[in-house]
Design a protein around this nucleic acid. Structure first.
Lengths: 235, 235
DNA sequence: CGCCCTTTTGAAGAAAATCAAGGGCAGTGG
DNA sequence: CCACTGCCCTTGATTTTCTTCAAAAGGGCG
């Protein structure tokens, strides 16, 4: 399983010199996996490893006191979660497998050392964090209108999957239930369903099972006020 | 104006050695100020300096296409904004002065260099970022109920002001209009007003002008599901 | 086939937005 | 010193959006 070096997110984000690439390639790691719905990193845990998702989807997940859930972010293949590990801090949320997942665990000390010895590597981590933060801000900003929120999420997932080489053209595989989409947007599953139907009625998307096809991406992006620049994709 | 070294956020966040302290103290900086409502860092700008707020309040600010605003974070005295500068990235939002402000601009290259030469300094930046992110996540999670959201924001501001030595006991000065609070919580000013009234009626707070007194902080925190641990305050 | 999970639809109710109009207060200028 | 002005807060009435409750209809898999 020598896939890690090929897909590691870091390389997408820095002008890695050969030296940096070697540094990343020689990071120690350990492959692990999780079945659907299992918690990968628990609330309150202090992980001693950075977490690189290789296959499957995961979500950052909180439970409110009243029992409702809130998803505060999706992790797609290639995404890295490292800040709690490097800062030796307790998780303020959990990471849960949305589908069966395969992931690599990179020891925090090793990543810290790599970052300390290469400005490019720490810059790459920084840029990844910038994007994480921009996504969170965008989720906050989006709470404008339910149909646009759903549209925006589809645009975000499409752009991120495409950058990771996981979307064919304007089609994407979204292994989320409408309840999970609702948990991410603070909508009920019933209302989420109606908003998705509206997007279909408007002619923005078609859908077969979990396969979504964006019919007119420019129109959907305009409708949802989606501007991909905040994702800082260097494609 | 040699206040910078005393209040710099970094020192609160790392076990700074004498060497680190010297490193921080000798950072170059430039004092600047802004009047109320003026934009300090614009959308789309690529700031070449980190921004340390010394006096006054500022807000991270986006405008939706329909003209409504969204505040995605408040900057209080002692808060540092650096990631866009260090990553040389365009701002995906603006920073606006809520009140008249005094702030220090620390050149990005100097901060980058300091972080590169001290693991403690970069760890401090990391921990500050962890808190920023946790606050964003918490704002997302809070969209549960308007009265609790207002209560939670009051608790957050109180905890942060207290940590910065800017709150006397359970009283705090909040120089925000109800419209701005609404912009931060995605509520209209009318509804924000009603929710604040409810908090008063419930006996959680009293208010005279912009001075808020929390009558029973444990009760308000319980009501609003506020748990200060995500702020990682080391007090 | 039958079961469970998810999607879909309907109807009623709650939460928040919108529209509209006063009222308080601080600052300004006559 | 008082009227005027602008900004913000406050309250009421109405409408929209979203939730809640309920039930039926796929759809994949043992």
């Amino acid at each position: 399983m020598s896939r890690l070096p090929q897909i590691i997110e870091l390389m997408r984000l820095c002008d890695a010199s050969e030296q940096d690439k070697t540094l990343i390639r020689t990071l120690p790691w350990e492959i692990d996996c999780s079945t659907k719905h299992r918690q990968i990193v628990g609330l309150g845990a202090t992980p001693d490893f950075a977490f690189l998702l290789l296959e499957g989807w995961a979500a950052r997940f909180s439970v409110r006191r009243n029992g409702t859930r809130r998803i505060t972010g999706f992790l797609l293949p290639g995404d890295l979660s490292w800040i709690h590990a490097l800062a030796a801090a307790e998780m303020d949320h959990a990471i849960v497998a949305v589908t069966d997942c395969v992931y690599a665990k990179v020891p925090a000390y090793a990543l810290l050392q790599a970052a300390g010895s290469s400005a490019n590597v720490s810059m790459a981590l920084l840029r990844a964090k910038l994007v994480d933060e921009a996504i969170l801000r965008t989720w906050l900003r989006n709470s404008e209108d339910a149909e646009r929120s759903v549209g925006h999420l589809i645009c975000e997932l499409h752009a991120r999957l495409k950058a990771a080489g996981l979307a064919q053209g304007e089609s994407l595989q979204v292994p989320l239930t409408q309840e999970q989409i609702g948990d991410a947007l603070s909508l009920t599953s019933v209302h989420t369903n109606r908003m998705i139907r509206k997007l279909r009625e408007y002619g923005f998307i078609t859908k077969r099972g979990s396969q979504i096809k964006i019919v007119d991406i420019d129109a959907l992006r305009r409708f949802s006020a989606f501007n991909p620049s905040y994702l800082h994709q260097t494609l």
